[in-house]
Computed example of a mutant assay.
Amino acid sequence: RPSFRIHLFSVVLILFCTNSVKINHIFVKVSSNDAVFCLVPAVGLSEKVLVFPYETDFSFVALIPQKEMALRAFTLCMRVATELPEERQIILFAYRTADYDELNVWREKDGRVSFYLSGDGVFFRLPPLSTFRTSLCLTWESRSGLAAFWADGRRSTYQVYKPGHSVRPKGTVLLGQDPDKHLGGLEATQSFVGEMTDVNMWDFVLSRSMIQAWHYGHKVPKGNIFDWASLEYELSGNVLVVDDD
């Protein structure tokens, strides 16, 4: 019969976490070496980079949106670098409610970049992600269904995808993992490995000039869903926050 004993150290860690700060989750991974991860909210990642050093089924960063993600349009931007081979599927952004993958962004096994809104996805052939940082943005709006990726300030062809659709609120956003159920069902072979920074999101479509300005590091309106400089986030597992030098 499997043992679910939690080591004294784990109990002490839980008590420390719950008595020291307000936390939204305690993530527990039960294995032969019981591990408890305390997700401590932190604020702001200006001039910082998230490093996911190797694949796991437990390391992720949970992002807490500044407003409910009931979306009929959005722009999502990030800077990303990875040395994972092109045939390895990688989750770049995952937003899931209790029953649906509301908004997932992937690099597929064939190297294409895709995103999914509660069902079948749409696929784009972009310059490959590599060890050198790529500025990646995604825009979509419900009225027309027009969707596009932007790589280093250059737009892909438009595709029409799910006109009339709405992204539903009250879910969880993760970087580094794809939850197959709400905060669960994580798979190492889909995890992100590499560096990620400047994750920003707006509830409208940024203009070409604004996306290009963001790519070059110029000032643009702060993301009203996620703003990297004031982002509220929670770390779990083996994720490092390092200076962006």
Rank of each mutant, 00 (worst) to 15 (best):
R1Y: 14
R5F: 01
R5W: 02
R5T: 05
L13M: 05
I14D: 05
L15K: 13
F16D: 09
C17K: 04
T18W: 10
H25Y: 15
H25S: 13
H25N: 14
I26P: 04
F27H: 06
V28I: 14
V30N: 10
A35R: 10
A35W: 07
F37N: 06
F37L: 15
A42H: 13
G44E: 10
L45G: 13
S46F: 14
E47P: 05
V49I: 15
P53N: 09
E55S: 15
E55G: 13
V61Y: 06
A62G: 13
P65A: 03
M69N: 06
A70Y: 11
F74C: 00
M78A: 04
T82V: 02
L84N: 09
E86I: 11
R88G: 09
Q89N: 12
I91E: 03
N104E: 14
V105I: 14
W106V: 08
G111W: 03
G111C: 11
G111E: 07
S118Q: 14
F124K: 07
L126D: 00
P127Y: 02
P127Q: 01
S130Y: 02
L138S: 09
W140N: 10
E141K: 09
R143F: 11
S144T: 15
F149M: 02
D152C: 03
G153E: 08
R155S: 11
T157Y: 08
Y158C: 08
K162C: 02
K162I: 05
G164M: 09
R168P: 02
G176V: 05
G176L: 07
D178L: 08
D180N: 11
G184C: 04
L186R: 15
T189W: 15
S191F: 07
E195T: 08
D198M: 05
V199T: 10
F204L: 08
L206W: 07
W214E: 10
P221C: 00
G223D: 03
N224A: 06
I225C: 10
A229K: 12
S230L: 07
S236I: 05
N238T: 14
N238K: 06
D243I: 00
D243P: 10
D245Y: 11
